[in-house]
Write a protein that binds this DNA or RNA. Structure first.
Length: 599
RNA sequence: GCCCCGGUAGCUCAGAGGAUAGAGCACUUGACUUCUAAUCAAGCUGUCACAGGUUCGAAUCCUGUCCGGGGUACCA
C-alpha cells in the first residue's frame, strides 16, 4: 500500500464525485507499486472501486486520471484499461517517506488503545540433551516475534518453560549413574548439556541391546513394539523406579538430578547467550507439573469434567471428542499440566494474550487445551494463540536424535561464525581488523537467524548443511552489507567535514533509483504492522531484502561523494543513505540481528 | 477412516481476487586504478499437481481427485 498524499486527496475527491455511492466512513483506496515495464511509480486498480463507488471501472479511472493530473504531487497520470498509473514528483515521494525519518520510524507504534500485554512462551527444552537446529528455529522465531511485537508497542513478556523432570530425564541420569565414572563438565571440558546428552544416547544404546536380547530369548515378543516392552527390561524397570524415587523425594536421586540439571542449564545459558535470548522468567516443570490437578477436581465439582466408567476424568469437547484430563490412577497427563501452567502464567502476568511457539505437530493439542480453558469459563481463553511452525528437514530426511542425524545448535553456531570469519579474512587481505571475532559472530549468527526467519513459520523447511548458509544473495549479510556500505560513506563524509543537513531540496533526487528507494522505505511502518498482525517475521525479512536491493541499485547509479555532484545533490543523497540505514538497522534490530561496524 | 497443512522455474522458497506469476541459488555473459565486487547489470528457466465451478478477472475462493507431511494416547 503506497498511499501518498495525492491518493488521500483522491479519496476525498471520490466521496464528492460519487455521491450516489454513500460511502462509509472507513472507505479507503490503496495503490501499489507499478509493475516493471509500466510507466509510473504507483498504480491504482479501479476494478476494486467499482462496487463501493457504484460506477464502472472505466469511468472511475477516467475521473481519477483527471483529478490526479491536476494534483501538484503528480507529474503524470495515465489510464491503462481500468488501471491508473501515476508518476509522482520526486519531492512528493521523498517528503512522504524519508522526509521525516523520525515520523516514519514512529509511525510503526500502535495507538495506546491497541497495545496489549502479551506473554510469549518459547524454547521449552528438555534437560536430557543439548539443543539442535529444531530448537534454534523455535528460539529464533520466538525471540524475533517477541521483539517484533514489542517494536509495534506491545508489552511483551518472553518466558521459558523447561521440561526438567520425567522419564526421559531419568534415562540420562540412570546411564550416568551406571557409566559416568565421575565425569563432569569441569574435569572433561565438555559443555554440560552435551555431556548429559551423551548419556542419553548411551542409555538408548543400552536399552536397544537389552531389547534385542529380550526378543531373541522370547521370540513370542517379536511383534511387540519397543514401547510395549519397556517395562519388560531391567533398564526400563530401573528407570521407572528412579522416576518414582524422584517423585518421593529420594535424597540420592534428587541430588543426582540437581547436579546434572545444573550442568544442562549452564550449557543452555551459553546457547541462549550466543543467540541473544533473555527470558522474563523461566518456569520449571518440576515446580509446575502438579499445578493442574486441583483445577480438575474443582472442575468435577462444577460439572465441567466428568468421571468415566474406568475412573479417568474426562472433558467432553463436542467436535473435538473427549479428552482425558486425569488418569484413572489420579496422576496428571500433559494437558493437566498445561491447564495449570496457563493459569499460573495468567495469574503471574494478567496478560491480554498468550502465545506459544510450539511445533505444528501439536496443533490438535492446543485446540483441545484452549477448548478446555474456554469450557472452564475463562473468557480470556479466546486470546490464546499457538504459533505452530513446521519442522526442519535435512536432505537426508527428518532429523532424529536417536539416529544421530541432528544438527547440533552449538556446532552450527560455530560453523556459521567460522565461515563468516573465513570469508571476512579473504576480503580483508593483509589488513586484518582487530574486531574480526566480534564481526564474524554478528555476521554468522545474523546469517543463520535471517535464513530461519526468511521462511514463513508454518512451512516445513529444508536445511542443507552441505550448502550451509550462504552469505550471498537473499541473506542476512546482504542486508548487513548495505548498512556497512552506508556507514562507510558516512564515515568518509564525516572525514571530509560534510555534515548531515535538514536543509534539503528533495526535487533534486529525481532518478528512478532514488524514487524507488524512497517509495520502498515508505512501506516500512505498514510492513512491520502487517508482520506483527500475522505474527510472521518473514514479512519483515522479505521487505528488508527489497529495501537493501533498492539501496544497492541506488548505490550503483547515484554516486554520493564522488563525481561532480553539486553540494545540494550530495547532501540529498547523503541524507537518503543515512535515513535508509536507519530503517535497515531498525528492521534488523527488530529481528534480533546485529550489524557489524564494517564488513 | 477422519482432521489439519502443503504441491508454483533444475533446487530452496515468495506471491492475502487484479495487468505479462516473482526472488535467491544453479547455469551463461559483462562490470573492480571507482563512495566496500558479501555488489551490480544482462540472459536462460513455468501445464502454478489434476479436473470442474464461482467471477469482468483465479496460483489465490468453492467442490472433487491424485501425491507428500503431520495429527487422530490414561506419551510429551
Amino acid at each position: 500500500m503506497l498511499n501518498f498524499k495525492c491518493i488521500d486527496d483522491l479519496r476525498d475527491f471520490f466521496v464528492k464525485a460519487f455521491p450516489q455511492a454513500k460511502l462509509a466512513e472507513d472507505f479507503t483506496i490503496s495503490t501499489e507499486k507499478c509493475p516493471p515495464g509500466m510507466n509510473g511509480d504507483i498504480t491504482l486498480n479501479c476494478f476494486r472501486l467499482a462496487k463501493p463507488l457504484k460506477s464502472s471501472p472505466d469511468k472511475i479511472a477516467g475521473a481519477a486520471v483527471e483529478m490526479l493530473n491536476s494534483h501538484e504531487d503528480v507529474a503524470q497520470a495515465e489510464k491503462v484499461k481500468a488501471f491508473v498509473n501515476v508518476t509522482l514528483t520526486a519531492a512528493a515521494i521523498h517528503r512522504s517517506s524519508l522526509g521525516d525519518i523520525d515520523a516514519l520510524l514512529n509511525a510503526v507504534v500502535l495507538p495506546e488503545t491497541k497495545r496489549k500485554k502479551i506473554v510469549i512462551e518459547y524454547s521449552a527444552p528438555n534437560t536430557n540433551k543439548p539443543q539442535h537446529l529444531g530448537h534454534v528455529r523455535n528460539n529464533t522465531l520466538g525471540m524475533s516475534l517477541a521483539a517484533l511485537l514489542a517494536r509495534v508497542g506491545h508489552d511483551v513478556k518472553p518466558i521459558n518453560l523447561v521440561n526438567d523432570r520425567g522419564i526421559h530425564i531419568c534415562k540420562s541420569m540412570l546411564a550416568y549413574q551406571r557409566l559416568g565414572n565421575g565425569i563432569t563438565p569441569e574435569n572433561s571440558g565438555i559443555k554440560g548439556d552435551h555431556l548429559v546428552g551423551k548419556f542419553y544416547v548411551k542409555y538408548n544404546n543400552l536399552l536397544n541391546e537389552e531389547l534385542t536380547e529380550l526378543k531373541k530369548a522370547k521370540p513370542e515378543l517379536a511383534d511387540k513394539s519397543n514401547e510395549d516392552l519397556f517395562l519388560e527390561t531391567e533398564l526400563g524397570q530401573a528407570t521407572q523406579k528412579m522416576l518414582q524415587d524422584w517423585e518421593n523425594n529420594d535424597p540420592a536421586v534428587r541430588e543426582l538430578w540437581l547436579k546434572m540439571n545444573k550442568w544442562v542449564f549452564a550449557g543452555f545459558d551459553e546457547t541462549y547467550r550466543r543467540m541473544g535470548i533473555k527470558f522474563d522468567h523461566t518456569y520449571l516443570e518440576s515446580n509446575t507439573y502438579l499445578l493442574g490437578k486441583d483445577l480438575i477436581s474443582q472442575g468435577v465439582d462444577n460439572g465441567i469434567f466428568t468421571p468415566r466408567a474406568d475412573g479417568a476424568i474426562i472433558a467432553e469437547l463436542g467436535k473435538l471428542g473427549e479428552k482425558v484430563v486425569l488418569r484413572s490412577d489420579g496422576t496428571s497427563v500433559y494437558i493437566t499440566q498445561d491447564i495449570g501452567t496457563t493459569l499460573k502464567k495468567y495469574e503471574d502476568y494478567q496478560p491480554d494474550e498468550q502465545i506459544w511457539v510450539v511445533g505444528d505437530e501439536q496443533i490438535f493439542h492446543f485446540k483441545v487445551l484452549f477448548a478446555i480453558l474456554k469450557k472452564m469459563g475463562y473468557d480470556w481463553a479466546d486470546n490464546l494463540f499457538h504459533l505452530a511452525y513446521g519442522m526442519v528437514n535435512l536432505p537426508s530426511g527428518k532429523m532424529k536424535s536417536r539416529e544421530g542425524t541432528v544438527v547440533d545448535a552449538d556446532d552450527l553456531f560455530e560453523n556459521m561464525v567460522e565461515l563468516a570469519k573465513k570469508s571476512t579474512l579473504e576480503r580483508c587481505g593483509e589488513d586484518i581488523p582487530e574486531d574480526i571475532d566480534e564481526r564474524s559472530e554478528i555476521i554468522g549468527m545474523g546469517a543463520l537467524k535471517f535464513m530461519l526467519l526468511k521462511f514463513n513459520p508454518k512451512t516445513t523447511m529444508m536445511f542443507d548443511p552441505e550448502a550451509s548458509v550462504k552469505f550471498e544473495g537473499d541473506t542476512g549479510p546482504y542486508v548487513q552489507y548495505a548498512c556497512a556500505r552506508i556507514s562507510s560513506i558516512e564515515r568518509k563524509a564525516a572525514a571530509q567535514g560534510i555534515k548531515l543537513t535538514d536543509n534539503l531540496d528533495w526535487s533534486l533526487a529525481d532518478s528512478e533509483a532514488e524514487k524507488s528507494l524512497s517509495a520502498t522505505a515508505f512501506l516500512y511502518p505498514q510492513v512491520l504492522q502487517l508482520a506483527a498482525e500475522r505474527k510472521d517475521c518473514s514479512v519483515l525479512v522479505n521487505y528488508l531484502l527489497d529495501l537493501a536491493k533498492a539501496f544497492n541499485r541506488f548505490y550503483r547509479e547515484c554516486p554520493v561523494l564522488i563525481s561532480e555532484n553539486s553540494a545540494a545533490v550530495r547532501d540529498i543523497r547523503l541524507a537518503i543513505c543515512h535515513r535508509v540505514r536507519m530503517v535497515l538497522a531498525d528492521g534488523l534490530k527488530t529481528l534480533t540481528i546485529g550489524i557489524p561496524k564494517a564488513m
